[in-house]
């Protein structure tokens, strides 16, 4: 294990201070959300605001979960995000593999085009997507929304997978071909197992892109496929903001992402360092 060696207590203290500052900056908003979800209605609107609840309560969670549409929305978010992630990987893996292995001009143009597509603001494609998804009969379905979400995650997925495939030596594919594998068999059974970390990273990005997405969910769903970000936003009405229930649902909605990240943590770290050692 070769870690960086910190010399001197001053440097160590400085690094710790920076670490704590960054942690607070990142963690405080979520911690505040979590604490607010345990506050009573009057505590949530205290002026000036208090960090800790004066009286702890779990009523907000019961309230949030008992609202119409909340549980179905959690199921919809999960289904949509999984399908979008699968779709994104299904399309990104062969695309990235082809681009990195064949190294053709159209391939290079394609990957640059994918990057440009990523820069298009989602709102610009919202109305055309609405028409297309409706024409396909997929309006207000998780499948329709997942397709829309894939338009957001696919460009980044292609780029990520391309960088991971670049780190795998061509000789591995060639050895597989010598052993009787075709190109696709080599990809599926030989190359992909080498880049599982990269796959995990790409899957997480695609999953998060769908899990947190708001605009397409707003335009393409109504009742059956409405996802949780829309339901959370519905707690803020023009007649007021239901802080307690909203923060409770937001806290619940964060749990799967946190769990997923923790479960895949090992793969993510491996994936992030995969491209770094390419020589």
């Amino acid at each position: 294990m070769n870690g960086l060696v910190v010399r001197g207590p001053g440097t160590r203290a400085l690094l710790w201070s920076l670490l704590v500052a960054v942690l607070v900056l990142y963690g405080f908003p979520f911690a505040y959300l979590l604490l607010t979800s345990f506050k009573t209605p009057l505590d949530t609107i205290a002026v000036p605001p208090t960090v800790l609840p004066q009286h702890w309560t779990t009523a907000n969670y019961a309230d949030a979960l008992s609202r119409d549409g909340v549980v179905p929305s959690l199921i919809n978010s999960t289904t949509t995000a999984i399908l979008s992630t699968l779709l994104s990987l299904l399309l990104a893996v062969p695309a990235a593999y082809g681009i990195t292995r064949f190294r053709t001009l159209p391939g290079r143009v394609f990957i640059m085009g994918a990057l440009v597509a990523r820069m298009v603001p989602p709102v610009a494609i919202g109305i055309p997507l609405l028409s297309m998804i409706r024409a396909l009969g997929l309006i207000d379905t998780p499948a329709g929304l997942a397709i829309a979400h894939t338009t957001l995650s696919l460009p980044l997925s292609i780029w990520l997978m391309a960088s991971f495939f670049e780190a795998v030596p061509d000789e591995l594919d060639e050895a597989a071909v010598v052993d009787g594998c075709g190109r696709l068999t080599a990809l599926w059974y030989v190359v992909l197992p080498v880049v599982t970390g990269g796959l995990a990273v790409t899957a997480i990005f695609a999953f998060l892109a769908s899990w947190n997405e708001f605009l397409f969910a707003l335009l393409l769903t109504s009742v059956r496929a409405q996802t949780t970000p829309i339901v959370i936003a519905n707690f803020q009405t023009q007649f007021g903001l239901d802080w307690g229930a909203m923060t409770a649902l937001a806290a619940i909605y964060s749990v799967p992402v946190i769990l997923l990240t923790l479960i895949l943590q090992r793969h993510i770290v491996a994936g992030l360092t995969l491209g770094a050692v390419k020589g």
Partner: peptide
């Protein structure tokens, strides 16, 4: 499951 009608009950479409 995903291509089914969604979990939000009867549809709006």
């Amino acid at each position: 499951v995903a291509t089914a009608c969604g979990a939000g009950g009867s549809g709006a479409g």
